[in-house]
Design a protein around this nucleic acid. Structure first.
Lengths: 175, 175
DNA sequence: CCGTCACTGTTGAAGTTTCAACAGAATAGG
DNA sequence: CCTATTCTGTTGAAACTTCAACAGTGACGG
């Protein structure tokens, strides 16, 4: 017989509330700082950041969606806006004509370079400056433990149809 | 002379990426589960949950905004929708006619009670089941450490000029 | 009393995300 | 070859959040 849900213990409840408060406030602080000083929301900054760290500064739309833990639709809308702003350019993929490349433009690279210091400063102030080196390690371990179920559970992933594992064989080569 | 921003160390960078991924995926999983099984987003569930845990199941709008770490505008829109749905009722405040009470209705209490088990199950599956008791304690300590700067920095709070402490005895000491 | 300022909450528009439906292209099978 | 299925990405509408402006109320000082 099912006992009903196992509610959270007092310790878990306390951790949960603190976790929710901290992540919510941090997200808001990062978003507001970037909007104010760089004119872009955090989600768009992360798109530019991911593109900047990849050879050719180019990724397929679906790779971008995977890396940023967001849906294809969201990426499509976001890249459309970043393209209007001149920070990203779309290019067709020759090997697989279903795919589209998103490429960071020089203007986008500049915008990212100007936004990065303020962003890192905000992350430091609200997170790492308050943590010991030991706590940083603990946090990494905790987050990796969470990523297990989170990446295994299909209901936890943004796009319903996606398989648990990555597409596997890399299809497209860039440039 | 400014050294430029202090970039993240490799350890910090690794922790940061894992933290971002874990919190983003967890948020999405919780939101999708509630939307699917209870027809409400996580933010609205939390409003109902906060109201349910308070004597009289009633809070002022601004208290609700503080507790849920959200803006007054967001609460106003959200309560408007919850009211249309019959889960919350607005009542005028006699003592201070600027204020408005938000009261959880019996229907809202029922909806919350039906949504709670699935929500707790999702939290367990994606978080606490993957963590040891020791890690739960570490996480709580880490989040409390982050809440220091996050609640101190006025730029980190949703509404500019809001009070630093909730029911704090010192309240608003500002001149 | 009056004027000024702070506080509370609402509103509408703009921006972002989600959702469902869709189209084009690759893939597998008969 | 032909068809069905899957993959990739886009689109428009609806939902949610943010932002700026606003109205009503309370608090304070002259």
């Amino acid at each position: 017989m099912d006992e009903g849900p196992r509610w959270l213990t007092d310790d878990e409840q306390a951790a949960w509330l603190a976790f929710r408060a901290a992540t919510t406030l941090l997200d808001g602080a990062l978003d507001r700082q970037l909007q104010r000083e760089a004119g872009m929301p955090l989600a768009y900054y992360q798109i530019l950041a991911m593109l900047s760290e990849v050879p050719g500064r180019t990724l397929r739309m679906s790779e971008l969606a995977d890396i940023t833990q967001s849906s294809q639709s969201r990426i499509s809308h976001a890249v459309a806006r970043l393209e209007r702003q001149g920070w990203v350019r779309r290019r067709p993929c020759q090997d697989d004509r279903r795919s589209t490349f998103a490429e960071l433009t020089p203007a986008g690279m500049t915008a990212l370079a100007e936004a990065a210091p303020g962003h890192v400063r905000t992350v430091r102030q609200n997170m790492f400056d308050a943590l010991s080196a030991e706590q940083v390690g603990q946090l990494a371990a905790i987050c990796h433990a969470m990523l297990g179920p989170l990446t295994a559970d299909p209901a936890a992933r943004p796009v319903p149809g996606a398989l648990p594992g990555r597409p596997g064989p890399a299809g497209c080569e860039r440039d």
